[in-house]
Design a protein around this nucleic acid. Structure first.
Length: 357
DNA sequence: TCTGGGGTCCTAGGACCC
DNA sequence: TCTGGGGTCCTAGGACCC
């Protein structure tokens, strides 16, 4: 990118799950299609652009989606299929560009730094993805991940937009801070309460003010984001730090008697997958969401990492008994964290010596 | 008819150590 | 007795992302 030694692209697959389903069921093309679970508490995973016109988006409760768009075709999600199609897409990206950071099933950053014509390279990637998979994508290009991401969001579906940081500031200066990934609804509200309604206004605030409002780390960070200042680099390898299984009940459950078998099933699934991948962790945690949507977590850290269902299950059960929720429970989850630490043993002086050598 | 599932990172406070 | 300061580990909650 002009003036910057760095260049990144963000590739975002257009309505990915829906697009994948439409390839299997082409007769649905042009119709409002919604990928969503079937239970009473299901939410929309992805909505086709036709369905979005009715106000149906990702995370819309399925019941509400039905009301907003009674003619929509509902399709049950098939994540193992989406994972396969995602791998196909990522293989195309990897064949075109050396350094790729996969962000989710439908998103990836490309490092275009050092290429003579980064924009041309990104256009070529877009064509290659569609040629190889038949799926559409939108690509943003910029001198930082942030500019690339916001540019990709600004021109979709089937979009392509390259911006400098300066161009991004000018183009989005009057837009809400919520446009920036990392500035969510809570922060937008806190800003609005203080009269800050645009990215331009936020970016122009003195650090001292932002520190006063949001603390000495978050405050200045928000200012930098608003000015599209972003130093993050591509991370081609991500180490998973925790793994969890959780479930929301169709109807709330009450009492340990009802919850315990579910906890056992969740633990079984989690530990089986952990063991299969040779992963283990030291911290066992449970998560309980009550009928009022408040969420409680309890955790205990062990001396030794484990993926043993008996061990994890025993700790999880103890945590649940100690918590003993009296209100009806709508969600129960179990998590193992600390997966990235040294295998097995706690860190004594000998380990520290070994690690420092 | 409210609000999935799987993650990451940050903050704040307490315990504990030197 | 009127009271350090820094560092690490841990827990709980919360914001946010795809």
């Amino acid at each position: 990118m002009r003036g910057s030694p760095y260049a990144y692209a963000l590739v975002d697959m257009d309505a990915f799950y829906v697009s994948v389903e439409l390839q299997r069921r082409p007769e649905l093309r042009g119709l409002p299609v919604v990928v969503a679970g079937s239970g009473p508490r299901a939410v929309v995973t992805t909505a086709s652009y036709e369905a979005r016109r009715f106000g149906v988006f990702s995370a819309t409760p399925a019941s509400r989606a039905r009301r907003l768009c009674p003619d929509a075709v509902f399709v049950a999600p098939d994540f193992s299929h989406y994972r396969e199609r995602s791998a196909e897409v990522m293989r195309v990206l990897g064949a075109q560009i050396e350094r790729v950071e996969v962000v989710g099933l439908d998103e990836a950053y490309l490092d275009l730094s050092g290429l003579e014509r980064p924009k041309a390279a990104a256009r070529q990637v877009k064509a290659a993805v569609t040629a190889a998979t038949g799926l559409g994508c939108s690509i943003g290009v910029g001198p930082s991940k942030l500019v690339a991401k916001v540019a990709s969001d600004a021109d979709k579906p089937n979009g392509f937009l390259a911006l400098t940081a300066d161009e991004a500031r000018r183009r989005f200066g009057e837009r809400s801070p919520g446009l920036i990934p990392g500035i969510g609804p809570k922060t937008v509200e806190r800003l609005e309460r203080r009269g800050v309604k645009t990215l331009g206004a936020l970016g122009g605030l003195p650090d001292a003010t932002l520190v006063e409002w949001f603390g000495d780390r978050l405050g200045p960070h928000l200012g930098r984001l608003a000015r599209f200042e972003d130093e993050r680099r591509i991370e081609t390898i991500r180490v998973r730090k925790s793994e969890s299984r959780e479930t929301t009940f169709d109807h709330d459950l009450r009492g340990l008697r009802a919850l315990e078998p579910v906890l056992g099933q969740l633990t079984g699934r989690l530990c089986e997958d952990l063991a299969r991948h040779g992963r283990a962790g030291r911290t066992v945690a449970i998560k309980v969401r009550l009928d009022d949507f408040s969420t409680l977590t309890r955790a205990r850290t062990l001396r030794v990492a484990t993926s043993d269902a008996q061990v994890v299950g025993g700790v999880a059960r103890e945590l649940l008994h100690a918590l003993d929720p009296t209100r009806p429970v709508r969600l129960l989850g179990v998590r193992v964290a600390g997966l990235d630490e040294v295998e097995g043993e706690p860190r004594g002086p000998a380990d520290q010596l070994r690690l420092s050598l």
